[in-house]
């Protein structure tokens, strides 16, 4: 039986009568890397803030690492490393003072690890938080999150505001952490490339609602493109094969874009004796556009980055 490191049951948050997060139920397996993707304003940050106890949910609950949320004691957060979308730390504190505060708060604070990370990121300890750039603040956030020796990492747009080199280092560190320590990672992003590299399970959130939650592999393998050329044009029956999202025509070539049951569609198309038949994988972006279109959403604003 799978152990869920993180589980939400109908989490809902209403802001001024509007549902920012609507009946969200998710399950994140222990040791897995889970990506939450959605456009800006879809409710990713609100959901994560509810997990971290920053916002109190309007309805619903959940558990993290076996402890119920919302949790009034804060105990559940002892083993969670959290990197917020914007780091709001005390602007008049020095980096080392922030770290000292954290070392007093977290029971498993790993001083050596913290020092090593500081060195690795070349973050000056004597600097005031106020004078750090956005990227440096994010680094400080990650240093803290990793120094608590987390069993679960919750990252809100972890690579936002970082330059490509740092972004890569950042993802490297996170992958290293999950590979070495078996740490569960739950991260939100609107960047498909980060998602594809890092995540094995992915959930799409749109307008506060979770559209689906699936293994990335399954998502990719069920959505493919079958190109076929038929000797006498396309047979009428081929237009209604179940599992086909869309058919594109280009001259004599017909492209069947599958949404599910790829094997079934493949056999049906083969049954029409095409003179030419080929399968193509779609890249993640196409997969998402197709799947979302099926869910009744166009991709407006989703993949601007």
């Amino acid at each position: 039986m799978t152990v869920w490191a993180l589980e939400t049951r109908g989490l809902t948050k209403v802001f001024n009568g509007e549902k920012a997060v609507d009946d969200c139920s998710l399950q994140v397996a222990q040791g897995s890397v889970f990506g939450l993707i959605g456009p800006n304003g879809a409710g990713k940050t609100t959901l994560i803030k509810m997990l971290m106890g920053v916002h109190l949910p309007t309805a619903g609950n959940g558990q993290m690492l076996g402890k119920e949320i919302p949790d009034t004691t804060g105990e559940v957060r002892q083993e969670i490393g959290y990197v917020a979308d914007t780091q709001q730390m005390y602007p008049h504190f020095k980096v080392e003072e922030i770290l000292q505060f954290c070392s007093m708060v977290y029971r498993n604070w790993d001083r050596q690890r913290c020092q090593a990370l500081l060195k690795g990121f070349e973050l000056p300890q004597g600097k005031l938080v106020r004078s750090l750039s956005k990227g440096m603040k994010t680094q400080l956030g990650l240093i803290i999150a990793l120094s608590v020796r987390p069993r679960l990492l919750i990252l809100d747009e972890p690579a936002g505001g970082l330059d490509p080199v740092l972004r890569h280092h950042f993802m490297q560190l996170i992958m290293q952490e999950t590979a070495r320590e078996g740490t569960t990672v739950f991260f939100s992003t609107h960047n498909l490339y980060d998602l594809e590299r890092a995540a094995e399970q992915v959930a799409v959130i749109m307008k506060g609602k979770i559209l689906f939650s699936k293994p990335l592999d399954q998502l990719k393998s069920s959505s493919r493109k079958i190109q076929a050329v038929f000797p006498k044009g396309m047979p009428e029956e081929a237009r209604n094969i179940p599992g086909v999202l869309r058919i594109e025509e280009q001259g004599r070539i017909y492209s069947f874009i599958t949404g599910s049951d790829f094997e079934g569609v493949w056999e049906r198309v083969q049954g029409f004796n095409p003179v030419y038949l080929e399968v193509m994988d779609l890249d993640l972006e196409d997969v998402f556009i197709n799947v979302m279109a099926k869910e009744g959403y166009t991709h407006e604003g989703l993949f601007l980055e």
Binding site: M171, Q172, M175, A179, E200
Partner: peptide, 15 residues
């Protein structure tokens, strides 16, 4: 090893 490679190329270790 899987771990080394995952860290090196920043790819999910399960992949």
């Amino acid at each position: 090893s899987v771990r080394e490679l995952a860290a090196r190329i920043a790819i999910n270790p399960n992949t």
